[in-house]
Simulated scan of single mutants.
Amino acid sequence: MLPSPSKISTFYLIALSSLVPPATSTNTTSAPISTPTSTNTTTPCFCTTYPQIAPAISACPSLTLHNIHAPAHSAIALTSLVPGTTITFSGTTTFAYTPDSQFRPIQISGSGVSILGAPGSVIDGGGEMYWDGLGSNGGLAKPGQFMKVQITNHSTMSDLYIRNYPSHGINLAGVKDSIIENIILNNSLGDAPNNRSNGLSAAHNSDGFNIGNSANLVLRDSNVWNQDDCVVVSDSTNVSVSGMFCSGSHGLSIAGGGSGTGHDISNILFKDSVVTNSTNGLRIKTDFNATGSVTNVTFDNIRLEDIKTYGIDIQQDYLNGGPTGTASNGVLLGGITFRDVAGWVVEGAMDYYVLCGNGSCSDFEFEGVSVKGGNRSSCNYPETGCPGV
C-alpha cells in the first residue's frame, strides 16, 4: 500500500519551507546572490552583461551568467553549445517586456552539456507584465515558451529556480538520453486575479514541463506551483518522471494524438510523487478525431490531495476549447496501469472519470487505487474493470 501522506511528502514540505521565497514578493533582488569566483568581470567566461554572452559561448568550456538582464526581443540563446560545455546561472536573471508569442526568452541546445543554477540564483520571467487570465489563448501577446531545451547525449540540467514565467514554462523538445533534476518552477504569484484577469487567476496556460519528441529522459525531484499541467508528455518514449511535487496544476498528464503519423507515446512512468490543490490528479487525454497511440504507461505510488475536478481522468474527447463529451477512437490506449494511487478529491468532484472511444482502450489495470471524497465517478470502459471507489 501507499505510504502515509506525511512520509511521501517530507521532501516537498522541506522544499516549500526552505527553498521558495514568499509567493507574494515581487522584489526580484530579494534572493541571495552567489559570490563570483573571480572579480574580473572582463573575463569572457564570466558574463555580467547581455552582449558578453554570444562570444563567451564559443570561447568558454565553462561560463557563468551573472545578474543578466536581457533587453527586449533578446533571448538568452545558448544554442549549438560546444559538447561538454557547462553553463551556470548566477544571481538574478531578468528580461525586458517582449509582447511576442513567438519569442522564447531562454533557448538551450547541445550535446553532453550541463546547465546549472548557482546557490541562491533566480530566473525571473516577469510574468506580472503579461498575465491577464487568458494565457496563450488570447489577450496580451506573451512569450509562448519561457525556456526551450533540446539537450542530448548524457546532458544534465539541474538546480534552477524559475519564477513568474509568462505562459508555458519549460519545453523539453527533442531531449535524448539526458537528466533534468532539482528544478523549481514557482508561478504561485499568478494564482491571484489581477486588474486584467476579470476575477480569474492572473496566470494561465502555465504548464510546468512540456515533454515532446523526447526519448530516454529522466525528470526527477522537482517542484511546480502553476495553473496548468504540472508535467505533460506527448510523442515520446522511455520517459521517467519521479519525485515531483505539483500544486495548483492540472496534474501529471499524457497528451496523445494528432493529425497524420508519428503521434505515439510509449513506456512512460510517473512515480513517487504528490499532486495537491489541483484541478486534476492523473490524466490521459487524447485529441478528438486524432490518430496515434498511448501504450505502456504507469502511474505508481502517487498521492492525490485536494483535487477539484477529477482524481483519475482518462478521456478521448479532448479539444483545447473544451471536451466534446463524445469520445473518438483514433488514438489507441493499451497497457495502462495505476498502482498504489491514493488520496482525496473535494466534495462534488469525481473520484475518477473514464471515457474511451469504441474499441480503442485495452489492458487497463487498477491495483491499490483508493481515491475518495467526491462520491461520484463515471466509467464507460467495462472490459477489465474501472478503479474501485
Rank of each mutant, 00 (worst) to 15 (best):
S167P: 00
I179H: 08
N186Q: 12
A173G: 08
G190P: 10
S155K: 08
Y161L: 10
A141K: 13
S188R: 15
N182E: 11
Y161I: 11
D177H: 11
I184Q: 12
S188V: 10
I183S: 10
M147N: 03
L185H: 06
M147E: 07
I180N: 04
N186M: 05
V149C: 04
N182D: 14
M157K: 04
N187E: 11
A173Q: 14
N164M: 08
H154I: 01
L189K: 14
N186V: 10
D159M: 12
T156A: 01
L185V: 09
D177I: 06
Y165C: 06
V149Q: 05
M157D: 07
V175Q: 05
S158Q: 13
P166Y: 03
I151D: 04
D191W: 15
N187P: 06
L185S: 11
L172I: 09
L160V: 09
L185E: 07
Y165I: 02
N171W: 13
D177F: 06
S155P: 04
R163V: 07
N187F: 10
A173I: 12
M147R: 02
H168K: 15
A173T: 13
I179P: 01
H154M: 13
V175M: 10
G169S: 09
M157L: 15
N187C: 06
Y161R: 12
H154V: 06
